[in-house]
Amino acid sequence: MGPRVKDILLGLLPILLALLFTTGILLAVGASPWEAYRSILEGAFESPEKVADVVAACVPLILCGVGMCITFIAGQWNVGIEGQIILGAIFATWAARNLPWPRVPILTTMLLLGMLGGALWGFLAGLLKVYGKVHEIFGGLGLNYAAQGLAIWLIFNPWKPADGATMSGTDPFPDPAWMPRLGHLRVAPLAVILALLSVVVVYFLLRGTRWGLELKALGKNFRSAFLLGVPSTPRLLTAFAACGALAGLAGAIRCSARYGRMIPEISGGQGYLSLLVALLAGYRPQWVPLIALFFAALGVGSPRLELDLHLDSSLGGVLEASVVLAVMLVGGLRALLARRRAQVGMEEAA
């Protein structure tokens, strides 16, 4: 067995372990694992409509996942990404409601404003990190609560829908503010193109620019990078803002391409999921689309569990989180074994 085959097998091991875990859970609740996995796959891929849904569900995961690669490379936990999605959606909704323009200018404005809103919220998270001296997870969570509160207040007051049914969101946007879809399919080609573009752009930004390399240096060893003259504060702030801009774009796209309105749950946990995506990708943007596809398929397919088997759709989330956990644990175990082997080797040499 060549080293390459061994690497691939070891790479698949965590997925097998995670599947073993969910299978155990399904058996424990008395459900047939075979039926459950089949119904998730069917729910995700049985028809062109479903496949289109999966592709559409990839878009926010790719945008946010790629964004999270930027902040993770800089050593930062941008948990505030949920709020950054919400702010992007709020800014885009403002444009859609207030600017009676034709399609091209209004869509461009919505997307740009969405990026601006997300970037501002990301910048704030960066400020809290730099000047707050508490782990950035807390600043991010605080900003998420604040963004959620702002969204709910807007939907319940100035943006109240005509029928008063606030839980289903604002009134639908005027037609030009809807991102064009592919025929009757619920996927907007423009959104997919933007998402894939973000992968390419961030890949080169992180690899080929001074900014990217300095972020990497800060993430690897903050203190020595700082001592070597990397301007840490501006780098961290721009990293947070860049991730926020991509998250804001995702928020704008969710309003414009998916719902055609602003809803209270506009971020829908996509930010937290994208955090898992970026962790699985090892902070490498080129891996994000593939992992996003896996997550999106689980997300679109698992509600079928409720219809077919009366199981909760959160099984998809369980599988996603346990794959990430298994990857971490297997990686840690391999490192532990390598340490043990090195120790034994040293003792034998001595």
Binding site: V29, V79, L279, D312, S314, L315, V318, A321, L325
Partner: peptide, 15 residues
């Protein structure tokens, strides 16, 4: 963090 997410999803599923 990953365990926090796993716990939430697992609680929803089993509960």
């Amino acid at each position: 963090f990953v365990l926090a997410m796993l716990g939430l999803e697992l609680a929803d599923f089993l509960g």
